[in-house]
Amino acid sequence: MSAISLRRISALALRYLYLLRGSWIRVLELAYWPTVQMILWGFITQYLAGHSDVLNQAAGLLLSGVLLWDVLFRSQLGLSVVFFEELHSRNLGQLFISPLQPLELILALIFISLVRTLIGVGIAVALAIPFYGFNLFTLGPSLIGFFFNLLLMGWAIGLMVAALVLRYGMGAESIAWAAIFALAPLCGIYYPVATLPGWLQPLSWVLPASHVFEGMRAVLLEHTFRLDQLLYALLLNAGYLSLGIGLFLAAVHQARERGSLLQSGE
């Protein structure tokens, strides 16, 4: 075995630096995750510091937020990742040579996303009972509305991400992970929308998840079921899901015209 060469190490390190310098996406990702975490936990701290009356219920609020947020996260990834598997295996073109319709693919992706979400979140909900003595089902019948709306939003985002990847290639795959976390500080998962700066609140209210988590806090803190919040979320989800389906169908149509389906894994 030859001696370790500082020259070879430097050459490789320089190569990696050039790769980093030549891709603004890589540079952005370096700052992205710490920034999102800082913003999210900063608002959590600000909310809890200014509302000492809710500290005795903080555990229930945080656990409910985490578990419901995971419904949104898993439903989006459950759709996106399964679709990416078809791209990586270069199977998408072969699927569309068959009589399969794009809408049928969407429905199949939605079904497997639901299955994966139920398995993943179901296990976490069950384990929260012996570990922390917390039962998410204490939210009562409203839990069904929360769950359904978060699923719809996750599917809408997943279809939009899939459409972007079809249009711009696998280089856009990282959006599947980044997009959902970029929305987290705006959705009021662990704190009310009122905690956000005034200029961010209108942006928060156009997200269905914000209405879901406001409804969740109303149940836990005020023992009130906010039907209006669930209806707002449902209306917004109808629009976003329609947009997601439309973008996905348009991306498939363009990929067919460009003949890029068979090269989708490259």
Rank of each mutant, 00 (worst) to 15 (best):
S174H: 14
P130T: 08
L105G: 05
A128T: 15
A182H: 01
V54Q: 14
R74F: 13
L63C: 04
L92I: 14
E85V: 06
A59T: 05
G122A: 07
D53M: 07
I144C: 02
P141N: 03
T138Q: 15
M170T: 12
A172C: 06
E86Q: 10
Y168L: 13
F111H: 10
G158S: 05
A126F: 13
G171T: 04
F181Y: 09
Q76N: 09
I97D: 11
L136D: 01
G60W: 02
L107P: 00
L103M: 14
Y132D: 11
A59Q: 07
F147P: 03
L107S: 12
A108Y: 06
W69F: 13
F148M: 08
A58Q: 05
R90F: 10
P99W: 08
A163Q: 05
F73C: 00
L105H: 14
P99F: 11
I110K: 01
D70R: 07
G169H: 11
W69I: 01
G65Y: 07
F181H: 09
P141K: 02
Q101S: 09
D70G: 02
Q101D: 12
V165A: 02
L164P: 08
Q76S: 11
R167G: 01
E86R: 10
L164I: 14
T138W: 00
R167M: 06
F83Q: 05
V115T: 12
F137S: 15
L186R: 06
S113C: 10
P99I: 12
L63Q: 01
A108H: 09
E86N: 06
I119R: 10
L95F: 09
G154E: 10
F134N: 05
L186Y: 08
I180E: 09
D70V: 01
Q57S: 10
L92W: 10
R116A: 14
A49Y: 06
T117P: 00
A176G: 04
A184N: 04
V161E: 15
M160F: 09
A182D: 04
A178K: 14
G158F: 08
N91A: 14
P99Q: 10
Y132T: 14
V66I: 13
Y132I: 03
W69L: 01
N56Y: 07
I123W: 01
L68Q: 08
M160I: 15
I112Q: 04
L127R: 09
Q94Y: 15
L48Q: 05
L62G: 00
N149W: 05
S174Y: 13
L114P: 00
E86T: 13
L114T: 07
F137R: 14
S174L: 00
I106S: 11
I97G: 03
L118P: 12
L152S: 03
G60S: 12
A162G: 13
I110D: 00
F147Q: 01
L62D: 00
G140M: 11
